[in-house]
Amino acid sequence: KELVLVLYDYQEKSPREVTVKKGDILTLLNSTNKDWWKVEVDDRQGFIPAAYLKKL
């Protein structure tokens, strides 16, 4: 499984997104879309802008 580091706080703006904090380490589920990556946060799955994440 691939992990990503959150570079900036992000507040979800729709039900398909998730809220994260800078410094969080998340499981990356899908990065095929270059703009929005799907991650897992506390048993929730959702999207975050790829620019907010860095692969570890």
Rank of each mutant, 00 (worst) to 15 (best):
S14H: 15
K1G: 11
W36R: 04
K34M: 10
K34I: 10
I25D: 00
K13L: 10
V6Y: 00
I25F: 05
N33Q: 10
N30W: 07
K22R: 10
R16D: 12
N33R: 09
V20A: 11
K38W: 13
N30A: 09
Q11T: 14
V39Q: 00
D42Q: 12
K38V: 12
T32C: 13
N33I: 06
N33G: 09
E12S: 15
V6H: 00
L3W: 12
N30C: 10
D43M: 09
L7D: 01
E17W: 04
Q11E: 14
R16C: 15
N30Y: 06
T27F: 11
A51W: 13
D43P: 03
E2V: 13
T32V: 11
K34Q: 12
D42R: 12
Q45G: 06
F47Q: 03
W37V: 02
V18G: 02
D35H: 14
D42C: 12
G23A: 03
K22H: 07
K38S: 10
L7A: 03
W36M: 07
T19I: 03
G23N: 07
E17V: 04
E2W: 10
K34R: 12
A50T: 06
A51N: 15
D42W: 09
L7I: 08
R16Q: 14
E17K: 05
K1E: 09
T27C: 11
Q11L: 15
G46K: 04
T32N: 13
Q11R: 10
E17F: 05
V20F: 03
Y10V: 01
A50N: 04
L29H: 05
L7S: 02
L56D: 03
L56N: 03
A51K: 14
F47T: 03
K34D: 11
V20N: 00
D42M: 14
A50V: 07
F47N: 04
D43S: 13
L28W: 01
I25H: 04
Q11K: 14
R16P: 06
K22M: 08
L28T: 01
G23I: 00
W36E: 06
Q45D: 09
T32A: 13
S31Y: 08
S31P: 05
K22Y: 05
P15V: 09
E40A: 10
E40L: 10
K1Q: 13
A51V: 14
N33E: 09
T19A: 05
Y10A: 00
R16G: 15
V6D: 00
T27K: 14
W37F: 05
K34V: 12
Q45C: 10
D42I: 11
F47G: 01
Y52W: 08
L3F: 14
L28Q: 00
V20C: 09
I48E: 00
P49D: 04
I48H: 00
F47P: 00
K54W: 08
L56T: 06
D35L: 12
D42A: 15
L5R: 07
K13I: 07
D43W: 08
D24C: 08
L7G: 01
L7H: 02
E17S: 06
Q11Y: 15
V41N: 10
N30K: 07
D42Y: 09
K22N: 05
L28N: 01
Y52M: 10
G23K: 02
W36K: 03
V39S: 00
D43H: 12
W36A: 03
V20D: 00
F47C: 12
D43Q: 15
K21W: 11
D24S: 11
A51L: 12
I25Q: 04
V6F: 00
T27I: 15
S31L: 04
V39D: 00
I25K: 05
P15Q: 11
Q45E: 13
L5C: 07
V4I: 05
V41E: 03
K38R: 10
D43K: 11
L26H: 11
K54E: 14
N33K: 07
R44V: 08
I25T: 05
G46A: 07
Q11H: 14
Y52N: 13
V18M: 10
K54L: 12
S14F: 07
V20Q: 01
E40G: 08
